[in-house]
């Protein structure tokens, strides 16, 4: 049993596409998931988050078998590329929903929300609406929600893809800071080889629904033996 994430012989069929994943991601690591578009990166994430249920095999998250569990019962936080915040709710509410899905917040909870917003550089933004924020600020707010949720796993689907290159750097360092503070297990889908080097301890390369390569980030970036991976790394 692992404390991180394990996909044990997981098989899934979606329409005409077949997926097969078998891998283990150790607790407290940052794993980058890469691959061409349509290769199955997001499906990989969905299997962990619970938006897809494996046809066969087991999904283990933070020491428990979650294969048949509803997304809400899995100890994960999620950050997407976009639409991480409900645009009609202010930041306090958006972050607060991470603590209590029916928004029953104690004074202590509110304090925690303010602290989390402070921590991601959005101090005093409680009443702001998402529409008044920049793309980077919205992603920071999503980080704040992940912080207050205190889940051992953080899943991210190209969280910085919509941001400017400069902003990506500062967001990446924020992510790493938060990761060191919380010691969570991070899985980040990215199509940017630089981001792999910048963020990840480990990396996975997926093509046609299968894991073609899994290695430490350093080895991963140096590999040239798999043509698809070589093509990806050369940009």
């Amino acid at each position: 049993m692992v404390d991180g994430i394990a996909l044990e012989n997981v098989g899934l069929r979606l329409g005409v596409k077949d997926f097969h994943f078998d891998c283990a991601l150790s607790a407290g690591s940052v794993t980058a998931v890469t691959g061409p578009s349509g290769s199955g990166k997001s499906t990989f994430l969905n299997l962990i988050a619970g938006f897809e249920t494996a046809d066969s095999g087991r999904v283990l998250v933070a020491g428990g078998d979650v294969t048949q569990k509803h997304p809400s019962e899995r100890p994960v936080s999620l950050i997407f590329q976009d639409n991480n915040l409900f645009s009609h709710l202010d930041l306090l509410t958006n972050v607060g929903l991470g603590i209590s899905p029916s928004l029953k917040l104690t004074a202590e909870n509110r304090k925690a929300i303010s602290n989390a917003l402070e921590r991601v550089g959005l101090g005093g933004f409680e009443k702001r609406m998402p529409g008044t924020l920049s793309g980077g600020e919205r992603q920071r707010a999503a980080f704040a929600r992940a912080l207050v949720r205190k889940k051992p796993i953080l899943l991210m689907d190209e969280p910085f893809a919509a941001l400017d290159p400069g902003l990506r750097l500062s967001m990446a360092s924020l992510l790493l800071d938060l990761h060191r503070e919380t010691g969570n297990t991070v899985v980040i889908v990215t199509h940017d080889p630089e981001e792999v080097g910048r963020l990840a301890d480990h990396a996975i390369f997926i093509d046609h629904g299968r894991i073609l390569a899994q290695a430490s980030a350093k080895e991963f970036l140096a590999r040239r033996d798999i043509p698809q991976l070589a093509e990806f790394l050369s940009g």
Partner: peptide, 8 residues
């Protein structure tokens, strides 16, 4: 996805 992941 979010609302179910948040357990609403």
């Amino acid at each position: 996805l979010l609302s179910s992941s948040l357990g609403m």
